[in-house]
Amino acid sequence: MDDDKRLEAFQAKIDREEKIEPRDWMPEDYRKHLIRQISQHAHSEVVGMQPEGNYITRAPSLRAKVVLLAKIQDEAGHGLYLYSAAETLGITRDELLEQLHGGKAKYSSIFNYPTLNWADIGAVGWLVDGAAIVNQVSLQRTSYGPYSRGMVRICKEESFHQRQGYEIMADMAKGTPEQKAMAQDALNRLWWPSLMMFGPHDADSPRSGNALKWKIKRETNDELRQKFIDKTVQQAEVIGLTIPDPDLKWNEETGHYDSGEINWEEFYNVVKGNGPCNNQRLTHHKRAHDEGAWVREAANAYAKKQLEKSKVA
């Protein structure tokens, strides 16, 4: 079969809403796009452990500590799961990490912002996981089988995280004046970066065309962002916090909230590596990886010795 026919069959399969599986033929660009997207997602889960881990040792109650530890453990598990999904496309985890360390692979820019008070841990769950869920719910229907199945599982856990985060925010918002100030401060700092998580406006999103045609993405950046805004504004109102957007208002006609313009200069600046924590996050990940090299080598050497022993025996 020539490539045109293959491509036609591939597209027809996608149009019939059938999943593409690892052994199926797929266009090289589809494979590349998926590797980029899944690895970016995996790296985000893993790098995201840093800003949340920043508060593990200072969690203000034993219950809060256990909940946070469990959450971060979930995120690490998602990372593993997604690395495995990426590996089904013919790339190794080592290669994916090299791409991360070399700056070729990205992770979500939200994790290049610092966590500066305990309410940030609430805000990360409520807003960051909240935004991630909107995206991931949509991705449950993505055309690549392993990714789609991964998303189904991940979504279940993320919705827990989102509720736990919101609970922290709610508790702080009704707490002492200092706690309420921390909650509002966290919202002020993390609201706009959360909106940026959905990426550029549709008109400025160069890769969306094929991704939508191939049903890797099911909804556009702006559609997903709007869904997030619509569901989050009310949640903020309920707990008495103010979304830091003076232009935010309900639009009767559209049935959605209108909102102010995102600071795209800041967005592109952070994507390019100039956010408050880009360097810190990457240096941390590299350091941990490099410091662990002797452990990985030892484990490999031991496994090799065991294999040789079992051959002799």
Partner: peptide
């Protein structure tokens, strides 16, 4: 718990956080 995001491989990060979680 101090070791979160500092493991030599991701699997070990999970294992150490898990032990920490059990101990708490």
């Amino acid at each position: 718990s101090e070791l979160c995001s500092n493991g030599p491989i991701l699997e070990e990060d999970i294992a150490m956080t898990n032990i920490s979680l059990d101990l708490f």
